[in-house]
């Protein structure tokens, strides 16, 4: 049941930041995640602060350097259908298109997709789990088919976003507004591993909101994609996936960013794989080696060891499709 809360619709970022700094305030962008969490009583809200009145947070525009500025309130549908994004930053367009369902993509925003709460059924369900302040991560001894094979400790969620991994691969920057002013971070630095703090997913302090995402210009000879493996054709989170952003010069890989999704509590970058690719021709042999390296060090739980071959297969297939 929805809790009783105060609804606030600020007219400026400064006002939004002010009301969001108050205890019990929850930010409402698209609401696709917030309303589910409130109805399922995952957390409470004293006030719900809608960002819908903030036109500064909307729109997609080119930056001076040939990059792109995407407002935090831009919907996943807008990103998925934007011809410029599909051409210059295909991994992001494909990530946005792979998320959720058409209705949810029409409503869900990029900022919200980055800041959504985890989908772990112990976190969402009637379990006093560690992420909600309890003693246990129930996934350790329980039903962990969909849980992490990398980066878990004390909590084994996987990050649910399909746009986060592409944005990390594309070296995007996130701009944040808060009580102490604005700041910028690489998207890669937005997320928090459970070893650091298992009760939150982002570094956002109380009152802080994501205002925009900045993409650097496309690399010369750039290629990229997002490959998501899921259990059903739509409205499903990743069992495993990979975002690739490569550039190819004279037949050889000049730069590479490889970021896995659905396997860790944060978008999981694999720098060793990037090193293996750079400076070499991408062929079937190297793709297979890279895929093997991508899952090296994985620590599967009782029910998710399938993710190791699955992610290896997805990475190999994704790399081969760029050959």
């Amino acid at each position: 049941m929805l809790p009783s809360f105060r609804y606030v619709r600020p007219r400026s970022v400064a006002e939004a930041v002010k009301v969001l700094s108050e205890p019990g305030a929850r930010v409402h962008a698209g609401g696709t995640d917030l309303l589910g969490c409130l109805r399922d009583e995952v957390f409470d809200a004293k006030s719900v602060v809608s960002l819908s009145g903030l036109s500064d947070l909307k729109g997609i525009s080119e930056t001076k350097d040939g990059g792109l500025r995407i407002g935090a309130l831009v919907t996943l549908s807008e990103i998925a259908w934007h011809p410029g994004i599909a051409k210059g930053w295909p991994a992001l367009a494909q990530g946005a298109a792979a998320a959720a369902s058409p209705q949810l993509r029409n409503q869900g925003t990029l900022g919200g997709n980055l800041c959504q709460r985890p989908r772990c059924w112990y976190f969402r369900g009637d379990f006093d789990c560690a992420r909600k302040g309890g003693e246990l991560c129930y996934a350790v001894e329980g039903e962990n088919t969909y849980h992490a094979i990398f980066g878990g400790s004390g909590c084994f969620i996987v990050h649910p976003s399909d746009t986060a991994s592409p944005l990390v691969a594309l070296q995007a920057t996130v701009r944040i507004a808060g009580p102490k002013g604005t700041r910028s971070l690489p998207v890669e630095k937005l997320f928090v591993l459970p070893a650091v703090d298992h009760t939150r997913e982002t570094v956002l302090a109380p009152g802080e909101i994501v205002t925009e995402i900045l993409l650097p210009p496309p690399l010369a000879g750039g290629k990229g994609l997002y490959r998501k493996v899921r259990a059903r054709g739509a409205w499903d989170f990743a069992l495993g996936g990979v975002a690739l952003a490569l550039s190819v010069k004279d037949g050889k890989v000049a730069a590479a960013r490889v970021v896995l999704s659905g396997v860790a509590p944060v978008p999981w970058r694999v720098p060793e794989v990037e090193k293996l690719l750079v400076g070499h021709v991408l062929d079937a042999k190297r793709a297979a080696e890279a895929a093997e390296l991508a899952v090296k060090g994985a620590e599967p739980m009782s029910g998710n060891d399938y993710k190791v071959p699955l992610v290896r297969g997805a990475v190999e297939e994704a790399l081969l499709s760029l050959v």
Partner: peptide
């Protein structure tokens, strides 16, 4: 859930009925 006997996926997201794409 083998520890508590509670159903983990008692919702329309985690209990996956086929979509038009399936």
């Amino acid at each position: 859930d083998r520890q508590t006997g509670k159903m983990c996926n008692a919702n329309w997201h985690d209990y996956k009925i086929p979509t038009a794409l399936d």
